[in-house]
Design a protein around this nucleic acid. Structure first.
Lengths: 211, 211
DNA sequence: GTCACGTTGTGATACTATTAACAGTAATCA
DNA sequence: TGATTACTGTTAATAGTATCACAACGTGAC
C-alpha cells in the first residue's frame, strides 16, 4: 500500500466519522457531494482523496458506504488494534483519559505515567497510573506503539526520550515544546495555546458584524 | 500591514515563545540558526518568516531580540488585548480554563457558558459560568471577539451559531465536528481524536526499533 | 585598506495541496 | 435505440509552502 498524503489521511478520518454517524439513506450509497457536505470540503476533494485511497465508486450510484468504511479502516487502523500510554496525569491528561479510556476504540490507552507520588497507583477513568521511572520497561513489555505527552513543557523532551526508548513510533504531544526525536518516530503536535493565538490573530483582522 | 501566511503565523508564535523563555546570551541578539534550533525548523525558514514579518537583522550580528519580540507582538496581538468566552464546561472545558484563566495573557477568558444548571453560577478557575441562553447578549455586551467551543459534537454547530450571532470573529473548536460559519469568521479546528488516529496511522508503518 | 569569514535577504526552484476542466460511464426516458 | 442527465476518475492548471543557491553586506584580523 503506497503512502497516502498527510492531509488526505486527516480527511479520511473525518469521512469515516461522518459516515459512521450518518442517518441511513439510499440503501448504503453516498455521492461525493453528499460526503463533501458532511465533511465541509469540496466534492472534488472527496473524489481525489478516495482515489488516493485506491477506492472506486460508480457513476450514478456513488460510493458503497460499507465497502468504503472497510477500506478506510484497513488504511487507518492496525489489524489488531494499537496500544498507547499517557505521560502526565494533570488537567489535560485526565481530560484525555476521560474520553479515550474504556470505549472499544482501536487505539487503547493501557497505562498512564506520572512523577507525582500522590497520583501513582491511582486508577483514573479505568487506567492505572504508574511511576514515570518504570515507563520504558513497562511500555516495552506491553507492546505500546503510541505515546501521548501531557506533561508541562520543561519535562516534555525527557518524556519523549523515554517513549522512544520504549520503542514507541508515534507521539502525540500536547506540551508547547517542539520535540527532537530520531527519524522514523512520528510526532503530532497539538498546541492549544498556539491555536488560540493563531485564531486571535486572524480574528483581529476581521470586522465584527453588527446585529 | 499585508497578510502573513498562515504557516508563518504559526511559527511566529513559536519564535516568540522560545525567545521569551530563552537564557540570555550575546547581549540580546540571535542568529537565524540559533532561533531555528530552538524552534526545530530550518534557518532559511526563520529568515524567510522574519522577512514576511517585515523584520530585518544585520549580517554578523543577527536579529535584535527585543525589537523582534516587539515586532511579533505588534503583528500577533491586538493593541488592547482580546476577550474570549468558553462554551461548554466539561472535562476539556475545565482543563482549558485552568491554564487560560488568570494569567496576564493578551487573550483573556471573561466568561464561560453551559447548559447544565448544576454548573451555572459556579466560578471555575476564576471564571464564572453563565446560562448558555444568555450567550449572545452577554458576549456582545462584553465585546468578546473569540469563542472557544468545548461542547459535545452534536451541540457544536448551535454553539457556533450563537457565537457568530454575538459578533465573534474567531472560533477555536474542540468538538470533532466541522463547523459551518459565515465568511469572515475564522475557525481553527483542534481535533484531538483525529490527531491521535493520524499519528497511529503513520506510527503503524514504522518499525519499532529494538533496544 | 583589504581579505576572509559568517551572516542576512531573496530570486529561483521544487514540492505539496487544491481547484478547474473535461472525458468516460451507467442509468433513465422518450 | 439514441439522447439526456448526473455522476466518477483523472489530467492539467493554480495556489500555497518549503528549500536551494547565491549575491550583498558588515565585522574583525592583519
Amino acid at each position: 500500500m503506497q503512502r497516502i498524503p498527510s492531509k488526505t489521511v486527516e480527511r479520511l478520518i473525518v469521512y469515516r466519522r461522518v459516515l459512521a454517524s450518518r442517518v441511513e439513506g439510499r440503501s448504503g450509497h453516498v455521492y461525493s457531494h453528499e460526503l463533501a457536505g458532511m465533511a465541509r470540503v469540496s466534492a472534488v476533494q472527496v473524489r481525489r482523496d478516495l482515489m488516493e485511497a485506491g477506492f472506486s465508486g460508480s457513476p450514478s450510484r456513488g460510493y458503497e458506504v460499507d465497502e468504503l468504511l472497510g477500506r478506510i479502516d484497513r488504511i487507518l487502523d492496525a489489524p489488531d488494534g494499537m496500544k498507547a500510554v499517557l505521560v502526565g496525569v494533570g488537567n489535560i491528561g485526565r481530560a484525555l483519559l476521560s474520553f479515550l479510556a474504556g470505549r472499544g476504540l482501536k487505539i487503547e490507552v493501557v497505562a498512564a505515567f506520572d512523577n507525582d507520588a500522590a497520583k501513582i497507583d491511582r486508577v483514573i477513568s479505568g487506567c492505572r497510573v504508574y511511576d514515570m521511572q518504570t515507563l520504558p520497561e513497562r511500555s516495552r513489555a506491553l507492546g505500546v506503539r503510541i505515546g501521548v505527552i501531557a506533561v508541562p513543557g520543561p519535562q516534555a523532551q525527557a518524556a519523549a526520550d523515554a517513549l522512544v526508548e520504549a520503542g514507541v513510533t508515534g507521539i502525540l504531544n500536547f506540551a508547547p515544546v517542539p520535540l527532537l526525536v530520531r527519524a522514523g518516530v512520528q510526532v503530532e503536535q497539538v498546541d492549544i495555546m498556539r491555536a488560540l493565538e493563531k485564531v486571535a490573530h486572524f480574528a483581529k483582522q476581521e470586522k465584527a458584524r453588527e446585529v
